[in-house]
Amino acid sequence: MELNVLWFILVGVLFTGFFFLEGFDYGVGMLLPFIGKNDVERRIVINTIGPFWDGNEVWMITAGGALFAAFPHVYATMFSGFYMALFLMLVALILRGVAIEFRSKDESSAWRSTWDWMIFIGSTLPALLWGVAVTNLIQGIPINGKMQYAGTFFDLLSPYTLVGGIAFLLVFLFHGALFLTLRVEGELIERSRKAAVKIGLLAALVFLSLVGLTYTNTDLFKSGLASSALWGAVVVFVAGYVLLWLKRFGWAFAMSGLAIAFTTIAFFSGLFPRIMVSSLDPMWSLTIYNAASSAYTLKIMSFAALALVPIVLAYQGWTYWVFRKRVTAKELEY
């Protein structure tokens, strides 16, 4: 396989892993103030992602690093073009990380509730912004002939991309609520289930609008793989919702995760071989060829990635095994 294609797939895999894993982290973070009614419950909710969230966030950092290494022009154009959006995202991620670490380290309730809301904001904003970003990539943004973004922050906001943002946010919320049903005990399970039932319906509606708008606003459906993946996402999402009704939480969570994975695959294969679509001239889109690193660098990085990714998957998977038990009030280690 051509290395440019391999790297496109690898970046896709990294984003899939990132959205699947951080998807439930963001969801849990957004639900925190609502599911956790008192301090003990909030600590339980946070501890469901406690051992994992930092490792999950590295998926995003690695995806960014992989873009830099494999497609430096994409990294340069995207990060400078999405400047204000990324600034907001960074503020959110900083607040969230610090909040998770700091909130239980002081007893004052003002301290704790402040940080809890920081976790909420820090989870909401990135979820929204990633949806806006991904839909912008495929809808097309003003990229000129010099590979430079020629718009402003507000050009990134259109009805389609806002629906994209809200769809991501709601799907992550659903995914997070299902994750909680697997990780908590007693009354909290019921509360998470009810949240998932309510959110799931809304998420399904917005997600369907996203599919519809994707049909009208982008060329995603021209790709057979992309359209089947997107319809597949709809199907597994609905299946997840049905399984939730049947209280098969584990399966429902697997389905919401699969829906996220299928959606990511759909957008990536819809983009292929482009990575950022130019709305000014199709010739100016950034592709896996005109934006790529040299063949030599891609080769070196391929060896490294193919050797390291399986190891990472193995030890991260092991972490989930170690902390497979539900989080209870009796053993709040942290």
Binding site: T62, P72, Y315
Partner: peptide, 19 residues
């Protein structure tokens, strides 16, 4: 510099940050 600078950054994430 992406062709040179990106590689160590990606390797940093893959080999060190995950760990």
């Amino acid at each position: 510099m992406g062709d040179i600078f990106g590689a160590p950054l990606a390797l940093e994430a893959l080999s060190a940050f995950f760990l």
